[in-house]
Simulated assay, not measured.
Amino acid sequence: MLSIVSAVLFFIAFLINAADISTNDTFTSTNIMLIGLAVLALHLAGLGSGWRVRGRRR
């Protein structure tokens, strides 16, 4: 799930950069790309991998 979020953030950053859209200082393409990299790092760390049931094995 987090990988999809990071892909969407990368796409938004690409659109802002390619269309040369003027935004305020908070939502620049570099900041959105860095947020996407942080979300991708969380995905690779295993945070968005889902729930694991730790029951008793027989």
Score class of each variant (00 low, 15 high):
S29C: 01
N24M: 00
T26F: 06
V39E: 03
T26W: 05
A18N: 12
D25Q: 08
G48E: 05
T23W: 00
L44M: 15
I4Q: 09
S3N: 13
R56T: 05
N17W: 03
S22R: 05
G50D: 11
I35K: 01
I21E: 00
S22C: 00
F14K: 11
R56H: 06
V53T: 11
S29I: 05
G46K: 05
I35E: 07
G55Y: 09
L15M: 14
R57W: 03
R57N: 05
L15F: 07
F10Y: 15
V8F: 01
G55C: 05
L34I: 06
A13W: 01
G46Q: 07
S6C: 10
A13Q: 02
S29G: 03
I21K: 04
L34R: 11
L42V: 06
N31V: 03
R54F: 09
T26L: 10
I35F: 00
T28R: 04
I4V: 14
V8Q: 14
N31E: 10
N31K: 08
A7H: 13
V39A: 11
T23R: 00
A7V: 10
F27D: 00
A18V: 12
S6E: 11
M33L: 14
G36T: 07
F10R: 13
L15D: 02
A45D: 08
D25K: 13
A41I: 14
A41H: 07
R54P: 04
A18M: 09
A45N: 08
S22Q: 04
T26K: 09
R54L: 11
A19M: 01
V8E: 15
I35S: 10
H43L: 06
A18I: 12
N31G: 00
I21T: 11
H43Q: 15
I4R: 08
L42E: 05
A45V: 01
D20W: 01
L34K: 12
L44H: 13
L44R: 12
R58L: 10
L47N: 02
N31C: 02
F10W: 14
A7C: 14
F11G: 04
G36C: 01
L9V: 07
V5M: 02
A7M: 15
L44G: 14
L40Q: 15
I35N: 04
S29D: 06
S49F: 01
V39T: 14
A41S: 15
G46V: 02
R57L: 06
A19V: 06
S6N: 10
N31I: 01
L40I: 13
L37N: 08
I4K: 13
F27E: 03
S49V: 11
F10K: 15
G48M: 09
A38D: 10
M1R: 13
L15R: 06
L9N: 09
V5N: 04
V8P: 02
R58Y: 05
A18W: 10
R57A: 03
